[in-house]
Structures are given as C-alpha cells and as structure tokens.
C-alpha cells in the first residue's frame, strides 16, 4: 500500500465537518479568528512588558479593555454610530467626486494636461493643513468633521482613479468604439468596470486614512461626540480609552468587510475560476 492510499484511508474525507472546514467562507472566518487571537496575545504581551518595565499598568490589556467596553457599551455605541455615519458619508462624498473626476482626467488627454499640474501641486500638501480653513468655512458642527475626512480621501481617490483610467488597455476602448459606442457608453461599459477593482482597493486604504482624519477632526473640536472625542475624553482612564480604540478597530474592520462584499458583488468576473492557459 502506498503513502497516498494510506492518507486517503485515515482522512475523514466524506464527513460534513471536514467539508465545512474546507469551505472558503469558513476558512476565511477561521483565518480572521486566528489573526484576532494572535493580535490580542501580542497586545497582552506588550501590556505585560510595559507593566514590567515601568512598574505600573500604563497600557491596559485586552481583558480590561473588553470589560470596559461591555460596561460602557451604551455610551460607546452612541459614539460608534456617530463616527460611522461621518466616515461613511465622507467616503461617499469623496468617492462621488473623486472617482468620476479621476476617470475624466485619466481618459481625456486635454483635461489631464490642464488638471494634472493642479493635482501635483495640491496632492503633496498635508491635508491637515486645510483644517483651519475648513473650520472657518463649515463651523464646528458635524459638517466640518465630514468635510475634513472627505477632503483627505478625495485626493486619494482622485489620484487612484486617474491612474487606473490611464492604465486601461486601449483594446477594450477600441472594442466598444468599433461596436458603435458613444463617448458616454465608453465610460459606462469600459472605464467604470475596468477601474472598479482599483478604486475599491483604494477605498480600502481610505478606511485607515479616513479613521486617522476622523480622529483628528473629532478631537480638534472642543465639544461633540464620536469615538475620537470619546477616546480623548477618557485620557485619564486608560481602560475606557482602550475600549474606545477597540470600537474604532471594529468600525474599520466592519468597513473593510463591507468593501469586500461590495467587490464580490460588483466585480464578480474577478472571482471566477481562471482557465489555465
């Protein structure tokens, strides 16, 4: 009996549990779980090391953070939804403005010649520098917090969309033009679907950037709500602040997963079985 036969006889091949574990979705969930467990272990380790070096519990461990999170769930939940609303709205505004403009600039050569220098000049400016002006224009309410994040993400998405539009194979454009496409149809049938995967990747990157800017925006105002405000307000209660940071991580993870689902639905062609050449 050879090795392969032995392996097939000992493996519970037909069992439902085995097949369930091998399912791509289950494997994905398991991978996430393992990552989270490793992360929590590293956090606990860091907390322990800081405690040992400083002789004081400066960095709360995950157990304390989660205990505080459960205890203050009602308050944190309120701040969570406020921040989530601002971040999602800002992402939608940035996407709605940056994506079409990026496609136009990337595809229309004359427009690119005119607009690109403006992008090159403004993109490297740290968007934090605009905060003062945004406060002057939008006041200190919700609008300014959304605007700060939207401005930061707008440039990111504009540059990504422009690059993605420039990289589209001319073959696709010739293909639809020869089939009788109008200029608008070229955008709808080629530019939009061809660049969507790149834009969704950029949107994923934007989640992290957006969270950072949201924190700055929420902590720049003296009053108000949101996770940034909550974390800053809990400065002298590290366990509570850690609970706020955990909520921020949860918000980021939620948005990442949402974008993943969106990509699976909108870019179905990317997930088909590639035929070997």
């Amino acid at each position: 009996m050879n090795g392969r036969q032995e392996a097939s006889e000992t493996q519970p091949r037909g069992s439902r549990l085995w097949r369930g574990l091998r399912h791509p979705f289950t494997r994905r969930v398991l991978t996430y779980l393992v990552s989270i467990i490793v992360l929590l272990a590293l956090w606990q380790l860091t907390s322990g090391v800081v405690h040992a070096i400083k002789g004081r519990a400066l960095l709360p461990g995950p157990f304390q953070a989660f205990s505080e999170l459960i205890r203050s769930i009602a308050e944190i939940q309120h701040h969570f939804w406020v921040s989530a609303g601002r971040l999602v709205l800002a992402m939608l505004i940035a996407l709605g403005l940056g994506y079409p403009l990026g496609l136009l600039v990337g595809h229309e050569r004359r427009l690119d010649q005119f607009v690109s220098p403006m992008i090159y000049i403004t993109y490297p400016i740290p968007q934090v520098a605009f905060i003062l002006f945004l406060f002057l224009v939008f006041g200190i309410g919700n609008a300014v917090k959304v605007a700060i994040v939207a401005v930061a993400l707008f440039f990111q998405l504009l540059v990504s969309a422009r690059g993605a539009a420039k990289n589209i194979s001319q073959e696709y454009i010739t293909s639809v033009l020869s089939a009788g496409a109008t200029r608008r149809q070229v955008y709808w049938h080629v530019l939009l679907p061809a660049t969507l995967p790149d834009i969704l990747t950029s949107l994923r990157v934007s989640v992290g950037l957006g969270m950072a800017f949201l924190y700055i925006a929420e902590t720049s105002a003296a009053l108000g709500s949101g996770l940034g405000r909550f974390v800053k307000g809990s400065m002298y209660r590290p366990a509570l602040a850690s609970a706020g940071i955990v909520a921020m991580a949860a918000l980021g993870l939620l948005l990442y997963l949402l974008i993943d689902v969106l990509e699976r639905l909108a870019c179905r062609w990317k997930y088909t079985q590639q035929r070997p050449r």
């Binding site: 073959e171 010739t174 293909s175 089939a179």
Partner: peptide
C-alpha cells in the same frame, strides 16, 4: 480584434450582444 476584444467584466452573452446593446 486581435484578441477578440472581449470585455472581461461581461459574460459571453453580454459580450456577444454588445453591439446590439450599445
């Protein structure tokens, strides 16, 4: 076209119907 000019994000049916659809 040289490589059939198919759009990867459209199915066989959508690609075959492209000219009619446009």
């Amino acid at each position: 076209l040289q490589n059939a000019g198919l759009l990867p994000w459209k199915t066989v049916w959508q690609n075959a119907n492209l000219s009619l659809m446009l």
